[in-house]
Amino acid sequence: MDTIQKYNEEELVLMLQRQDQQAFAYLYDNYAPALNGVIFRLVEDRSLSEDILQEAFLKIWNNFSSYDRTKGRLFTWMMNLTKNLTIDTLRSKGYKKQTKISGDENSVNNLQDTNSGAEKFDAMGIRKQLANLKADQRLVIDLAYFSGLTQDEIAKEIGIPLGTVKTRMRTALLELRRLLQYS
């Protein structure tokens, strides 16, 4: 049973809709580290992070029917589900991290620290290419995708007007995609 099966996203989704456990194992193997990274950056605690990861995957399994392929990539759906679950967990626990999310000066540094911590677990060579991403571009991407901050909070965090957040993100993402050749 050691055959290494590789599925494209469409096959994977079809199999998961039929509650295929083998497909789910494949999904886990391929996405658990990335999702765990997203959670870890929010909670900064490995064991809590893994508890939430478990919850997230159970949610993905149980609510798979609510994923709509026409609305976007599977990973985007899973990431947003995971992010929301993490933020809800932090809030329900009255977690201290809340104060960080409110956006004081320190949170920017903390976030960067976390990123360099995650570097140890880097699974892919993409890192090298990403080294060329400017620090402020990287920051806006991290804040938007991995911090749990709202648009408003991101604007405050970086110290730019709310209207500029979109364009900053656009520029940063374009650079990211250029570096990763996803343009």
């Binding site: 658990a32 580290p33 990274g37 976007g72 892919m124």
Partner: peptide, 17 residues
């Protein structure tokens, strides 16, 4: 393309559970 780029970015900064 945006979401594919993001996915690759998230993969590159993953934390193995």
């Amino acid at each position: 393309a945006i979401t594919a780029g993001l996915e690759a970015y998230a993969q590159s900064t993953g934390v193995q559970p």
